[in-house]
């Protein structure tokens, strides 16, 4: 494994003593996110203070950072739910979001929730059923959201997001409220769906392991800035026990200012 870290001030990736240019496998893909000097100020405090970020189609990036560092604010700006106070924000028009909660309309059946933003006709209904099939909920097309488990509801939210064929998929801690076993299954599912549809993905998470498992690139925010920006070239599927994985986790935890006293199983 090689880890190329770069920041705003050091655009050229540097690794220890040797100079290795970052291989960017997405360089030829169209840009799905372009941020330049984005600022967001709450009550005089700059939560985001000059964020530059480009994400290309097919690229899976994770945003890590301690609570209150503006990860979610950044995601809301990308979603168009919040406006930047300064800087340039350009995002793909076809984008969708999966939130921490499923946010399904309880009064609508599952397939109608999948088609929330689309015309609801017989033809689109078939498309919704197909999207539900992809997340393993083909049998629940006609169910009411209330009858679903937390994991199932979140899969419906994922189907709803993918049914729009987004060029940019924004994930705001979508697995945080799920139990550990369901979370592992969701990781697999998201990786699978991403490979099949290849949108640009921006995942906001607290979970360092999750970020390493899923992303091509991990960004750590701190003090309103990009503190750490590294491309991961670990082979997929990734194993938590791999040396490279463990080393990267230690590095990211250090960047996040966490020094674990209980060593993780290696």
């Amino acid at each position: 494994m090689s880890l190329h870290s770069s920041s705003l001030h050091h655009p050229a990736p540097v690794r220890a003593t040797s100079y290795i240019p970052a291989p960017d496998p997405f360089a030829d893909n169209p840009v799905a996110v372009h941020l330049a000097g984005v600022r967001r100020v709450f009550n005089g405090r700059a939560v985001l203070d000059g964020i530059d970020l480009d994400v290309r189609r097919g690229e899976f990036i994770s945003l890590l950072g301690p609570s209150g560092t503006g990860k979610t604010t950044l995601l809301r700006i990308l979603a168009g739910l919040d406006g930047a106070d300064g800087g340039r924000v350009q995002v793909a028009a076809a984008r969708s979001v999966v939130f921490q909660e499923p946010r399904l309309v309880p009064a609508k059946r599952v397939w109608q929730n999948v088609l929330l933003g689309a015309p609801q006709t017989a033809a689109t209904r078939t498309a919704a059923a197909r999207a539900l099939e992809e997340v393993g909920l083909g049998r629940h097309t006609d169910a009411w959201p209330r009858t679903l488990s937390g994991g199932e509801a979140q899969r419906v939210a994922l189907a709803r997001a993918l049914a729009r064929e987004p060029h940019l998929l924004l994930l705001d801690e979508p697995f945080a409220a799920l139990d550990a076993l369901t979370r592992i299954r969701m990781h697999d599912l998201v990786a699978q769906l991403w490979r099949r549809h290849l949108p640009a993905v921006v995942l906001v998470t607290h979970d360092v392991d999750e970020a390493i498992l899923l992303s091509d690139r991990v960004i750590v925010l701190a003090g309103g800035k990009v503190r750490f920006d590294a491309r991961l070239d670990l082979a997929r599927p990734r194993q938590r026990g791999d040396d490279a994985f463990v080393a990267l986790r230690a590095r990211l935890l250090a960047e996040l200012g966490v020094a674990p006293s209980i060593p993780h199983h290696a």
Partner: peptide, 14 residues
């Protein structure tokens, strides 16, 4: 009505 639901609907372009 939960404002979060309305927000989700906005994201999906309603």
């Amino acid at each position: 009505v939960d404002a979060k639901l309305v927000e989700a609907a906005q994201v999906f372009g309603l």
